[in-house]
Structures are given as C-alpha cells and as structure tokens.
C-alpha cells in the first residue's frame, strides 16, 4: 500500500457510525458515507485521513468474502456436484466437486464423501464472489485441503490484519514465542498446531490482540507476554491491511 510511504501526512482518530470523519474532496474512501463534502463513518473503528483518502479501519463486523482470501471452513452438506461450506460469513460457500476430483468428475464414478465428510474442516481459497451469488471455493494451492490436527480459534474477522501484523510481524512474534504454527484465515479462524503449552500461550496472545486491537504498541505487548524479541524496529502504530 502506498500509504506506507513515511512522509504521507496521516491524521487518525477513533470514530463510531455517523460521526463526521472529515470534510473536503477525497479520491479514495472506505467505510464512510458521503453527504456532499462531508464524510461520516459507517463503522466503529480507527479513521485514517490522508490528503487524498479517507477511510475507517473497522474494529468489529462480519466477514464478507473477497476473491483470493484464505478461509477455514466446515463442511456442512453436500450434493452430487459440490460441498457446502460454512465459512463464518453471511453466505455458505460452495466447493465444486470438479475442483477436487478434476475436470472429468462424474457423480456416477466419484463419491464426494470419500474426500470430505460433513463436519470436516478445510482450508480453501475464495475463487469467485460478487454478492449476487454464493462464494465459490478452490483447493488448488499449497497448504489447502483438509485440516487434520490443531486447535481452531475464532476471532473477529476485522482483527485478522492485526493478528498478521505489518509484513507478518505479529504472526512471527506469536510463532516464535510459542513454537507453534499458525494458519490465519481471513474469515477469522486460526488453526494453531504445535505443543499443548504452546497452543495455550498462543490462544492467550490472540485474545490479547483481539481485545487491544486499537492500541498502538500492541506488538510490544505481545512480545512481552510471550517473552520474545523480534529485532525489526519498524513497528508502526498503523494496522493497515496486510497481505500474507
């Protein structure tokens, strides 16, 4: 994101729905509602105002799928052609059988339950979604497929960027401090695998991040909790959207 360039002038403030964030002309906006030149927040969160953009980073809200998101979901049903997956969103997602069995999938030959049963957890990518149809999932990609072990923790989907941290710094701190591996899905589900004590520590770290997502020196706090030190000093108070 180009907002990261050090010299850009950013004003930040805490806002709630209906609150005036800024007045003026902006090229880009996010989670705001415009009346003439006035921009009002539509969410509870942190407003960031730069000379050409006004946006609110929400602290609470549902998961709305986006193409290419990594999600963790639960198989809840299946038909002859697809599995239905609960991805912690307002819509159930579909995983087409063709995506798993290949192009020559035939309901006469292949049995869906051989691969995934109702109640199984999977890691998947969102292949298509445009709000007029239910999201489609895909398992093509490294690390995708059935989740066989680990503890699954649910956090607010809006706090996922904070859990990942700037360029993955937060995840690294938690992984280093707990000897666990974390798979953080955009829909707010996190799979933790590793030793039991590590899992317990990781859960407490995640709860801290969730509770204090608006606090500036959060990575510091997490490092103290887990008694680890990540040497990058480039810790910013911003929690802009990070890619994994």
């Amino acid at each position: 994101m180009k907002g990261d360039i050090a010299m850009v002038d950013v004003t930040r403030k805490y806002v709630i729905p209906g609150e005036l964030v800024s007045e003026g002309k902006y090229k880009n906006s996010l989670n705001v509602f415009r009346v003439e030149d006035k921009y009002y927040s539509t969410r509870v969160g942190m407003a960031e105002i730069t000379p050409d953009s006004v946006r609110v980073i929400p602290l609470t809200g549902p998961y709305i799928p986006r193409v290419d998101d990594l999600v963790v979901g639960k198989i809840v049903d299946y038909s002859a052609f697809a599995w239905e997956v609960d991805i912690n969103s307002c819509f159930y997602a579909y995983l087409p059988a063709q995506n798993v069995f290949g192009r020559d999938y035939s309901p006469a030959r292949n049995e869906l339950t051989q691969k995934f049963a109702v109640g199984d957890l999977i890691a998947a990518k969102v292949m298509a979604f445009d709000r007029t149809r239910d999201p489609l999932l895909s398992l093509s990609g490294p690390g995708l497929g059935k989740i066989r072990q680990g503890e699954v923790v649910k956090i607010s989907p809006t706090k996922v960027p904070r859990v990942i941290g700037k360029k993955g710094s937060m995840i690294r701190a938690v992984e280093m401090g707990t000897n666990c591996r974390l798979t953080v899905a955009q829909n707010g589900l996190i799979v933790i695998s590793g030793p039991t004590e590590g899992i317990i520590k990781a859960i407490s770290a995640l709860r801290l991040i969730e509770k204090e997502a608006h606090v500036a020196d959060l990575t510091q706090k997490v490092q103290t909790l887990l008694s680890v030190k990540v040497d990058e000093k480039s810790e910013s108070e911003s929690d802009g959207e990070q890619e994994e």
Partner: peptide, 11 residues
C-alpha cells in the same frame, strides 16, 4: 447494530 459492525449511516 454498531457493535455487530453493520454498516450504518448514523446511530
């Protein structure tokens, strides 16, 4: 509704 994080024009 605000706590649920639903987009709102105002309280």
């Amino acid at each position: 509704l605000a706590d649920a994080g639903i987009n709102m024009r105002d309280l």
